[in-house]
Nucleic acid binder design. Sequence first.
DNA 1: TTTTGACCCGTAAACTAAAAAAGTCAAAAA
DNA 2: TTTTTGACTTTTTTAGTTTACGGGTCAAAA
Lengths: 203, 203
Amino acid sequence: MLAENKDEMRDKILEAALKRFMHYGASKTTMNEIADDLRCSKASLYYYFSDKKALHNAVLMKIGETFFDEQEAEADKDISSEEMFSNIITIKKQFVERYSRLELFKILNDKSEEIQQIIRSVHERETKMLTKIIEKGVASGEFDVDDPVAIAQLYRDAMEGLRFAGMSCIPDNIPDLDKEAFDKIVAQQKLLTEIFVRGIKKQ
Amino acid sequence: MLAENKDEMRDKILEAALKRFMHYGASKTTMNEIADDLRCSKASLYYYFSDKKALHNAVLMKIGETFFDEQEAEADKDISSEEMFSNIITIKKQFVERYSRLELFKILNDKSEEIQQIIRSVHERETKMLTKIIEKGVASGEFDVDDPVAIAQLYRDAMEGLRFAGMSCIPDNIPDLDKEAFDKIVAQQKLLTEIFVRGIKKQ
DNA sequence: TTTTGACCCGTAAACTAAAAAAGTCAAAAA
DNA sequence: TTTTTGACTTTTTTAGTTTACGGGTCAAAA
């Protein structure tokens, strides 16, 4: 046996999968390769994960968890709202950089109800965090907004949207983020955040 | 001869092409079909347009012209900046509705240098118009911005981006704009505009 | 100068076969 | 009983081939 218990083995598999995914991309990684890396049989993997997509999702969940933890920690710090927003942008930037080789977009593109559900829950969690920040600002008298949830959603969508704007229409292949364009997006996100915050401040 | 002169014939072709494009989509329309509609030979079309893409571009230009004229007229009216922005959003909405069956996205997706050039010039023209509006606001003391061009670009990108946000990742097929989602986008654009304008107002 | 029928040619769709990868299971091992 | 595995089946990808269609050309006609 490779691990002491079931959970540990699951974790070892996720680790090995993530390593492969980051090196070769998720779609180019086979179950056999992961099994070989772990010096176990492919059938073993299926003992722990019902199918390949379940493995994908588990890996996604795993990295998503640390991703959110970082952001939410930021939202709890005792700094200005604008700093929070700015730092969150930076965290996301680093996340995208770190996991760019993972080909997340390919996993996310499958349109299966399952994945759509995950995406929706991610959005929800992001919005919830942003709402909290805005509500805090409202409570402290810094912001003047009627519907914090709607504003949080708007801010979230605007930030996400800036990633696509400019590359007019459809990036049906890899949104090749050359350093240059990528930095421009981050700069725009920060500038928009500045204006946005000013726009919802109590006059 | 179908027309009195060359320009008129070009126009007849554009008209027929646009009709087909709007009915069946640009990519599903063949040169033969357009020729048949005009009761002329395919070869004639090639006398007026060097190739199919040139025809696409010409159609694009034709409808783009009226599109811009409408917007620029709006920008010259004697109304508040916010009204201008809002009205421009409405004009665009109507444009998208009117020409949705045209499958513009498919034409725009070819990544050819020629099309990229057109897209860039469209962006430039939009940005120029928005810059003008912002500069007017700066001159009248309504706005306080250092770099009107950068702000115009940001606003433009943010508006465009909102169209893609939410449909996380890649719409490799038709961005099926069901009425509902479409209206939500417009609402978000108007709300963001409101906040944005407030965010660049002189305090 | 403009139009056309006949023709050429590149390519995308349609099939196909072979290979590879996903996924299963009964039996062995722990 | 829980976990692992080799041997197996099924599904998906890929690569190769054919075909038909639509883009594009041209010499001759109008």
